[in-house]
Computed example of a mutant assay.
Amino acid sequence: MTTALITGSTAGIGAAFARRLASDGHNLVLVARDTKRLQEQATELHDRHGVEVEVRTADLATDDGIETVAARLSDRRAPVDLLINNAGFGNKGRYLDVSMADELKMLKVHCEAVLRLTSAASEAMRERGRGGVVNVASVAAFVPRGTYGASKAWVVQFTQGVAKDLAGTGVRLMALCPGFVRTEFHQRAGMGTDNIPNWMWLDADKLVAAALSDLARGKTLSIPDPRYKALMGLVKVTPRGLLGGVSSRTGRKYGPQ
Results as ranks from 00 to 15, higher is better:
5 L>I: 01
66 I>H: 03
252 R>C: 09
35 T>P: 01
99 S>Q: 01
221 L>F: 07
183 T>V: 00
57 T>C: 14
66 I>V: 14
257 Q>E: 15
232 M>V: 06
245 G>I: 09
165 D>N: 06
111 C>W: 10
113 A>W: 09
134 V>K: 00
2 T>Q: 13
55 V>H: 00
169 T>G: 05
5 L>V: 03
84 I>K: 00
188 R>Y: 01
230 A>V: 07
102 D>F: 05
228 Y>M: 10
167 A>H: 06
192 G>I: 08
57 T>L: 10
126 R>A: 15
165 D>G: 05
9 S>K: 01
171 V>G: 03
88 G>W: 11
8 G>F: 08
180 F>H: 01
162 V>S: 03
179 G>C: 09
84 I>P: 00
39 Q>G: 13
98 V>S: 01
30 L>Q: 03
112 E>A: 08
168 G>H: 06
23 S>Q: 06
173 L>T: 07
143 V>R: 04
161 G>F: 04
85 N>S: 13
56 R>N: 06
185 F>V: 02
2 T>I: 10
31 V>M: 00
170 G>F: 05
255 G>W: 14
179 G>A: 10
219 K>R: 15
181 V>S: 01
179 G>T: 10
90 G>S: 12
213 S>L: 15
115 L>Y: 12
95 Y>Q: 11
210 A>I: 08
140 A>L: 12
44 E>G: 05
40 E>N: 12
170 G>K: 02
18 A>N: 01
204 A>D: 12
216 A>V: 06
249 R>Y: 13
250 T>E: 12
125 M>V: 14
248 S>H: 15
230 A>Y: 08
116 R>H: 08
179 G>E: 11
165 D>E: 15
158 F>Q: 05
180 F>S: 02
212 L>I: 13
95 Y>P: 00
48 R>P: 00
152 K>H: 07
222 S>N: 07
46 H>Y: 11
131 G>Y: 12
99 S>F: 01
154 W>H: 01
56 R>Y: 00
229 K>A: 14
103 E>Y: 07
54 E>A: 07
48 R>W: 02
111 C>H: 10
112 E>H: 09
77 R>Y: 11
178 P>Y: 11
103 E>V: 11
49 H>T: 03
35 T>F: 12
41 Q>K: 04
44 E>L: 13
237 V>K: 00
149 G>Q: 04
77 R>Q: 15
215 L>S: 10
245 G>M: 10
170 G>H: 03
100 M>W: 11
49 H>P: 03
128 R>I: 14
38 L>I: 07
7 T>E: 05
71 A>P: 02
189 A>W: 02
34 D>K: 03
116 R>N: 06
45 L>T: 04
111 C>F: 11
1 M>V: 12
124 A>G: 11
131 G>T: 11
186 H>C: 02
234 L>I: 12
137 A>V: 14
48 R>Y: 04
215 L>M: 14
190 G>K: 04
190 G>R: 04
8 G>D: 04
24 D>G: 02
60 L>W: 13
29 V>E: 02
1 M>G: 08
123 E>S: 13
